[in-house]
Amino acid sequence: MTENKIEIVYEAIADKIDNLGEEKAKLFLAKLSLLLANKIEDTSFVLNAIDDAALSLNQ
């Protein structure tokens, strides 16, 4: 994905979270993850991404 595309997605998600409100953000992001993961054939890729996303969160 090019820089510009990721920027569009980044902004769309940020705005959607603000529309839904803080309370529903977690559920929304979890649903979004599943929707996107469902499109990816390579399960190991998704599992790696799950580990990557968790990195540096325990500091």
């Binding site: 994905m1 820089e3 990721i6 980044y10 998600i13 940020a14 705005d15 979270i17 603000d18 540096s56």
Partner: peptide
């Protein structure tokens, strides 16, 4: 970032940027 959503996404991008270059570019 002045809203919850934008702050959350900013923090996500910065946190990912430690390992993923594409996320760091968002700070350019």
């Amino acid at each position: 970032p002045s809203t919850y959503g934008w702050k959350l996404m900013r923090d996500a991008a910065l946190s990912l940027a430690l390992k993923h270059k594409f996320a760091g570019e968002l700070a350019n």
